[in-house]
Design a protein around this nucleic acid. Structure first.
Length: 555
RNA sequence: GUCCCAGUAGCUCAGCUGGAUAGAGCAACAGCCUUCUAAGCUGUGGGUCGCAGGUUCGAAUCCUGCCUGGGACGCCA
């Protein structure tokens, strides 16, 4: 628990005592004490709405209740500087701010660890994300999911969860056959033959490149080969090449997985096992020569086919087995990051989990809304089929990893994202990523300057000298960081960190313009401010690290 | 037709376990570099929080209905 949380906790405890002492409510009647941090500084450090909540219970006017509470409050114990009743009955607390003195030493000591907490209590969480079919390149939309998933994992890890990152490889099923036929067509075309792409073929450049590689390695060896043998080879070759591409792209995007899970591995016995479990519970029936799952019993719109008339599984079937496997691995939470086009799939998956006998509250699906790409003020349509979408690789080359990642985790995942290419690649102040990085670089320059001027940067400091408004603002903001990370993790909202880092940068820039840090006429204050700057730098760097963005020392 | 997401300043979006005067960036306008990086700062203007009801002491936030935009509704994956 950090210093800020401690003061908050003590204050809450004191409020509870005061309410009871004032005979306003019994322990049982007492609602949860909510302390909010007011946006408006004139409303104090914390504001409580307890008086309004108690109005009905105590049968008194809120402002009267507020006065009663204050009169029974041990202000010394709660380190209150001043307390006021305001508006309809808010109690505004102005704290003594003793705790601010502890923030800098805490940060300097923790360094790269600052922001880490044990909020998650070591809970085991698995995040499955990206999981793109190995049939082509990663595109813009996938990139958003990749950035979201990766940052979410970073944040969970920092907040004390045990995180495992997993990629589900769809290496079985129809799409892989289509891949083989697409490669075949491209291969023959490369050799000048008239070959048509299959109807559901993959038209992307990646497939053409794979065909070219085969030609380079094997020449026309496959033209007259046995058809079955040829397809089998193209399937494996295409699959491996695609996977390699995907892995390379993700690595370039700074996304790494702990586990690559193959759909094929389920076919040995996991699928039959899962089906058996469902059957045992009577959630399976036969109709029209197909096998059905009674997902409607768990709120789905209609029942779903598991085994098709032709004897093959639908996509759902191995996926059920996959989720059973995940849950059997003992995770407290499994989080799936899916594209918006898969949201209709959620009810049947949740139904399956319940039917298998698992609690469905362990299962979370984060839907990543679409990305609309804009360039020159015009919307560019994305289409996987025609292969015209912007590839992740090209995006990285164009705007850089830092800008791309930052943009993707600025917005909430369930809001559609307009990605402005011109803005992302602009090396100007319109581009928010530079704003934050610039704050970090500025501090580095100051520390460098300090050395050049012979100012000792490691000397002792007296943090109580930092009483100017901009200094106090910075200190308070710094103190919030661990809570921000913990909240982002708990609510699965990584963009909270992006927002925090931006706000901290704003305060730093504002401070920078108002205050001269290196003041040779006031060594003590200079030492304190240097310590403050180091703390801001560490916090910015840690925040950027969570987002997966670099923190440059010079710009 | 059913389901999911969104609708907040000119634009892009935060805010949503209900709280005080609804925020930020960009754009517009007016200032600030002989001083640690002006990729910065300071200030001004700008809003029926899609619409209508409801719950509440209090609603951008919760509930219902409707409107608009996007997406999904397959024995495809």
């Amino acid at each position: 628990m950090n210093v800020l949380e401690q003061t908050e906790d003590i204050l809450k405890q004191e409020i509870i005592e005061a309410v009871i002492k004032a005979n306003l409510a019994t322990k049982e009647q007492l609602p949860d004490i909510v302390l909010e941090k007011p946006k408006d500084k004139s409303h104090g450090d914390f504001a409580a709405n307890i008086a309004m909540q108690l109005a009905r219970i105590a049968k008194k006017a809120p402002r009267q209740i507020a006065d009663d509470i204050i009169n029974h409050l041990d202000q010394t114990k709660a380190s209150i500087e001043k307390v006021e009743v305001a508006g309809p009955g808010f109690i505004n607390f102005f704290m003594k701010n003793d705790f601010l003195g502890d923030i800098i030493p805490t940060i300097l000591k923790a360094e790269t660890e600052y922001g880490r907490t044990n909020a998650g209590n070591g809970e085991k969480v698995q995040v499955e994300f990206v999981s793109v079919n190995p049939t082509g390149d990663l595109h813009l939309g996938h990139a958003r999911g990749a950035a979201y998933g990766d940052v979410l994992c970073n944040v969970l890890d920092a907040a004390g969860y045990q995180v495992e990152r997993e990629y589900y490889i769809n290496d079985a099923g129809n799409q892989i056959d289509n891949l083989a036929y697409s490669v075949e067509a491209r291969y023959l075309q490369e050799l000048g033959q008239d070959a048509e792409m299959p109807e559901d073929g993959y038209h992307g450049q990646a497939i053409i490149d794979i065909a070219k590689k085969i030609v380079a390695e094997d020449g026309d060896k496959w033209v007259n080969a046995d058809k079955e043998e040829r397809i089998a080879h193209f399937k494996e070759y295409g699959l491996q090449s695609s996977l390699e591409n995907i892995k390379n792209d993700l690595q370039a995007f700074r996304v790494e997985f702990d586990n690559w899970f193959s759909e094929r591995s389920l076919y040995k016995d996991k699928i039959t096992e899962a089906l058996k479990t469902l059957d045992k519970e009577n959630y399976i029936y036969e109709k029209d020569d197909a096998t059905w799952f009674k997902s409607t019993e768990f709120g789905d719109d209609k029942d779903r086919v598991l085994v098709k008339k032709d004897g093959n599984y639908t996509y759902l079937t191995p996926d059920i087995a996959y989720h059973k496997d995940k849950l059997d691995r003992g995770f407290d939470q499994i989080i799936n990051v899916w594209g918006a086009d898969h949201h209709g799939y959620v009810p049947r998956m949740r139904a399956a989990i319940q039917a298998l006998g698992y609690p469905s509250d362990k299962f979370h699906v984060k839907i990543i809304q679409m990305v609309n790409l804009f360039e020159g003020g015009e919307k560019i349509r994305m289409s996987k089929r025609t292969g015209k979408a912007v590839a992740l690789r090209d995006l990285i080359e164009d705007v850089g990893v830092d800008a791309a990642r930052y943009f993707f985790v600025t917005r909430s995942n369930d809001s559609q994202l307009d990605f402005d290419m011109d803005l992302a690649r602009s090396q100007s102040n319109d581009n928010p990523i530079f704003y934050v990085q610039y704050a970090h670089a500025r501090i580095c320059t100051m520390l460098e300057q300090a050395k050049n001027k012979g100012i000792e940067t490691d000397s002792t400091y007296d943090a109580t000298l930092l009483t100017a408004e901009k200094e106090v603002d910075l200190l308070k903001k710094l103190g919030e960081f661990p809570q921000v990370v913990a909240e982002a993790a708990e609510k699965h909202l990584p963009h909270k960190v992006t927002q925090y880092v931006f706000d901290l940068a704003t305060l730093l820039h504002s401070f920078y313009n108002a205050v001269k840090v290196l003041d040779q006429d006031n060594e003590e204050l200079t030492s304190a401010r240097i310590a403050l700057m180091k703390s801001v730098r560490i916090t910015l760097a840690n925040g950027l690290q969570l987002i997966g963005v670099t923190a440059p020392e010079k710009m």
